Simulated assay, not measured.
Amino acid sequence: MFANYLIGLREGLEASLVVGILVAYLVKSDRRDRLVPMWTGVLAAVALSLAFGAVLTFSSSQMTFKAQEAFGGSLSIVAVGFVTWMIFWMRRTARHLRTELHSRLDAALAMGTVAMVATAFIAVGREGLETALFIWTAVQAAGQTTDPVLGAALGLVSAVLLGYLFYRGAVKINLAKFFTWTGAGLVVVAAGVFSYGVHDLQEASILPGLDNHAFDVSSTIPPDSWYGTLLKGTLNFSPASTWLEVVAWLLYVVPVMTLFFLPGRSRATPAAPAPAEAPAQAR
């Protein structure tokens, strides 16, 4: 539940901040008449995200076992790719998100209502589709229980509440630090999803090594125990993991975490010399 709560919180807060910035800009620029098209785009994006999650669930339920494993494993790897890109993108642009959205909104206001709807739809829809895909794959990795869905739902509710408080000025969030530490947590979660996707592809006979276990500690950490469930839900830890799963986990988490915490290059340009003061006027 915790891993999916983190996904819902992190992804939901991004979408909530986007909506809050759009609403605040329209209100402060006295363009309240554009709020209806903006909310139309937001609701359309939410509906598309929910429909996408429903399609994924329905499509996989109609497949054979091997087809389900191939489908789930492939989507797990795709979801990890999207989320990894999102983590680095948000870390780089968190401080400038407001300026970027304002420039897009100015262009949309100049173009008319349809552009306004499209801007809100794209801004929120991208986050929504990524969230739906990653939550779906995380739920598959955690098993068919209600806990992952409940965790993701609680995370989304928390994100909406935080976004509203942030918009109202009732809470101050250091976005750079927030997205840095939640991003690090998502790297660990994504590594587990990636490893589970590899396992699915092994189950589908697409990748080899299904019977070559690196370790099997099922007797020490039973999968149905509370601590086994906790490790499964937070880290996607499997008590019986193949060598390929372990290698996939390490090949993802080590370089991605290293790159994530590398200090960014300083892009600051040398300060221009201060202009010389004009000589005092002779009295």
Rank of each mutant, 00 (worst) to 15 (best):
T119D: 04
L201R: 10
V27E: 14
G185S: 12
S218R: 13
V189K: 02
S219M: 11
W181E: 00
Y196M: 03
A108H: 04
I7R: 00
D30T: 09
A271T: 11
N174E: 13
Q68H: 11
P263E: 13
F237I: 08
L250T: 11
P273I: 12
P37Y: 02
A141K: 02
P279A: 15
R104A: 06
R92I: 06
D147H: 03
F166H: 13
S60M: 07
F215C: 07
R34W: 15
Q68F: 03
G73Y: 01
Q281L: 15
D147T: 00
Y196G: 00
S103M: 12
Y196E: 01
Q281A: 15
V188R: 01
Y227S: 13
A248Q: 03
E69I: 03
A123W: 02
V42S: 04
T234Y: 08
V55L: 14
G8T: 03
A271R: 14
Y5L: 15
P37I: 05
A274I: 12
L201Q: 08
T234F: 11
L262E: 04
G163F: 12
L105F: 07
I173R: 02
H102I: 12
L156C: 10
Y167N: 05
V36E: 08
W85G: 09
G8F: 02
T145C: 00
A184K: 06
D211P: 03
R34I: 07
L175K: 02
A51I: 09
A94H: 10
G12H: 02
A115V: 05
Q140H: 04
Q140N: 09
F178Q: 05
W39H: 10
F166E: 00
V80K: 02
W181H: 12
W39K: 04
E14K: 09
G73L: 04
A47E: 06
S218M: 08
A170Q: 10
F178I: 06
L105C: 01
L262F: 14
R10S: 08
M86I: 10
A70V: 06
R95G: 13
T146R: 00
G183C: 11
V171A: 14
M116R: 03
F58P: 03
A159H: 10
A276F: 09
V256E: 11
F260R: 14
P222S: 06
A47W: 02
F71M: 03
V217L: 15
P279Y: 12
G185E: 11
P263H: 12
L75Q: 00
A204T: 07
E130G: 07
V247I: 15
G185N: 11
V27A: 12
T234N: 13
S76Y: 03
D211H: 13
F58V: 14
L186F: 10
T137R: 00
A152N: 09
G209W: 12
E245F: 10
R98S: 15
D30H: 13
L6P: 01
